[in-house]
């Protein structure tokens, strides 16, 4: 289980016995029972689980957008209680995470202005980020003038320009078509390799998780705990066709699929 985080590198993100209970008007709902895992610096971790497994809740807890009921989340040793520095989140709802009254360039630039990055450096970061996601030609368009896939690219460019240490992605490609999805997967994968950023990628798509991750965390149904931590020993160079037709890929898919099915069944009992 420890194969992928050998190398002795320190863990960047530590999720320790996190429990999250929502309570409203006397009724309590235990979304997360006990989640405990570490993410090392530079790792690409995918989290899969059946729908309703509290994946988004978990990501919001990690992102400091939601308080944990007990346990703790730490980033680089510092406890996360509000959105920490050096963390960027890409949400599933790209259309709702971009400011519609700002142009593509302004959207990417806004967090950098807040970080007080000097203007020349800012312009550089913005154009590099737009270049990296293949949107150098539309800086002055508004997000709603772009297709869904392009909007998500803007959100990714914003995250990239922010230069985070850790990038959280919450089912970022669940709402785009299959073709675009494959393109965006390759984009994120190549960005991860070139930027050496740590990525925590939540998805309900098992293939996507295996394709992208160095490690896949399979979650149980709600109340959530870690069902299994699956290392992905695939070659680091990924290719949509070749990687996905490897026999190892198929084995991993079957294994994780069975785990998710088990998770679903445990819900019924």
């Amino acid at each position: 289980m420890n194969t992928t985080r050998s190398e002795g590198d320190a863990s960047l993100l530590e999720v320790q016995h996190v429990r999250k209970v929502y309570s409203s008007g006397g009724t309590e709902f235990e979304a997360i029972r006990d989640l405990d895992f570490r993410v090392s610096d530079g790792e690409f971790l995918c989290i899969v689980g059946p729908s309703g497994a509290g994946k988004t809740t978990l990501l919001r807890c990690i992102g400091g957008l939601l308080d944990v009921t007990s346990g703790s989340v730490s980033l680089a040793g510092a406890r996360v209680t509000s959105p920490p520095e050096g963390m960027a989140i890409v949400f599933q709802e790209y259309g709702r995470s971009l400011f519609p009254w700002l142009t593509v360039r302004q959207n990417v630039e806004l967090p950098l202005r807040e970080k007080k990055v000097p203007a020349t450096r800012r312009a550089e970061l913005v154009s590099d980020a737009l270049e990296a996601v293949g949107l150098a030609h539309v800086p002055d368009s508004y997000p709603w003038q772009l297709s869904g896939g392009m909007q998500q690219r803007v959100a990714i460019a914003r995250a990239v320009a922010y230069q985070p240490r850790i990038l959280l992605m919450d089912e970022p490609f669940a709402a785009v078509d299959a073709q675009t999805r494959a393109e965006l997967e390759d984009l994120v994968f190549s960005l991860w390799k070139s930027l050496q950023v740590t990525v925590v990628f939540v998805t309900h798509d098992i293939d996507e998780a295996i394709y992208l991750g160095q490690r896949v965390l399979v979650l149980s149904n709600s109340p959530t705990s870690v069902l299994e931590d699956v290392p992905i020993p695939l070659p680091k160079a990924r290719d949509q066709l070749r990687t996905r037709s490897l026999p190892e890929f198929n084995e991993l898919r079957q294994k994780i699929h069975r785990l998710v099915q088990t998770a679903k069944r445990t819900m019924i009992t």
Binding site: G63, S82, E85, I89, F91, S97, L98, P111, Y162
Partner: peptide, 12 residues
Amino acid sequence: EVLADTARSYRL
């Protein structure tokens, strides 16, 4: 909400 979360997460 998503937009508000985005603004928070980028520490605006």
